[in-house]
Design a protein around this nucleic acid. Structure first.
Lengths: 197, 197
DNA sequence: CTGGGCTTTTGACAAATGTCACCCGGTCGG
DNA sequence: CCGACCGGGTGACATTTGTCAAAAGCCCAG
């Protein structure tokens, strides 16, 4: 019997996925949590074989949680298959990655594969991640753009990053150019689409 | 036995919710679809007692689907409880509205209530919708802002709406002011948060 | 019909954003 | 060592965006 811990912020979805996994005779859901920052304690208490993590969660996002527990068998389950997410998950040693629009059997299959020490990647997603490639932005450009995405103005970004306004404008301009965007808003959308910020 | 039709674009979630509803002895899921524009045909074919609709779907969004079938018992199920969504759903004659982060039993309860001719509103959400009130933007302001949200520049918006650039700037400025934002980006975020664009 | 209150429209002006050419300091190959 | 290259940082300048005061049209109550 494979013992599973389930973390997802949407209560109803969490219950629904638990019900789905419970249909499998060899899987049992031993605990459920709704916040990223509660996962560590729950893992310590219940010692699950596999942890299924949503990425979008309050407290701490699923990728950060995965990074904080190397060695733990983890399957990432996420709404949208952003190529950058997959890349980050791989870097954190995650061996299973399933988008929420995958067929229902894929999740159970992924849990079994990961429990057995193997890898499971959604084929669709793996392909698009290959296409997408690396994030073309430098660290500072990404810093500036992600603050802009939260609605900050140039002067606020400058204060946050301890830079002059001119520098910030320059980073944003570079980001806009590299992303093939025409202004800040389209640049933000493009970067979010790819999971880069 | 209450016959339910389920529409949600995320395959895995759809299966999970179906599994959850099937646990209830008096409910049965007679069909599932993954696109808004396939709902009408499926309803005609299967004649379900209640239709459970996600809002975010390709093809046609859940609210538009609900508007197109007055009289049909509908429960709206959505990821995020935007007050504007609830308002639009009520206007379309929807009698059940459940956010995805509600407790798992709420969905089955909502389906039963709606099937019996009653209403079911998530209490949390009803409260925040009361707080939020009507969208303060005029039609043209909303037009301009939603184009801006898709990344259009002032001049592009002006062409789309057949206006001069000055007028468009004025609309965006009014929207920014009414929403208590400090620039276009925060205004877009605020309006999306409330489900107004 | 008359006037008040609303949206829509406008252009002039001020402020923020985007672009450019450039400097500085590592570091990598020859 | 030297130069090419890359990322970080900067200010001056052009363009876009945001604000303001005002005018025209529309609808409704009086």
């Amino acid at each position: 019997m494979i013992r599973v811990l389930l973390a997802d912020d949407e209560h109803l979805i969490r219950g629904a996925i638990a019900s789905l996994l419970s249909l499998e005779p060899d899987l049992t859901v031993v605990a459920q949590v709704g916040r990223g920052d509660e996962v560590a304690a729950a893992v310590a208490e219940h010692r699950p074989d596999v942890v299924v993590l949503d990425i979008e969660m309050p407290g701490l996002d699923g990728l950060s949680v995965a990074e904080s527990m190397p060695g733990q068998a983890v399957v990432i389950l996420t709404s949208f298959g952003r190529p950058g997410y997959l890349r980050r998950a791989m870097a954190a040693g995650v061996r299973g990655f399933v988008p929420k629009d995958a067929p229902a059997e894929e999740l159970a299959a992924a849990v079994r594969k990961v429990h057995a020490g193997g890898r499971y990647l959604d084929p669709e997603l793996a392909a698009s991640a290959m296409m997408a490639g690396e994030c073309p932005l430098t660290d500072r450009e990404r810093d500036a753009l992600s603050l802009a995405a939260r609605g900050a103005s140039v002067s606020e970004i400058a204060v946050s990053l301890r830079l002059t306004e001119g520098t910030v404008r320059n980073y944003l301009s570079n980001a806009i150019m590299k992303l093939g965007a025409s202004n800040r808003i389209t640049a933000i959308r493009a970067a979010q689409e790819m999971g880069w910020i």
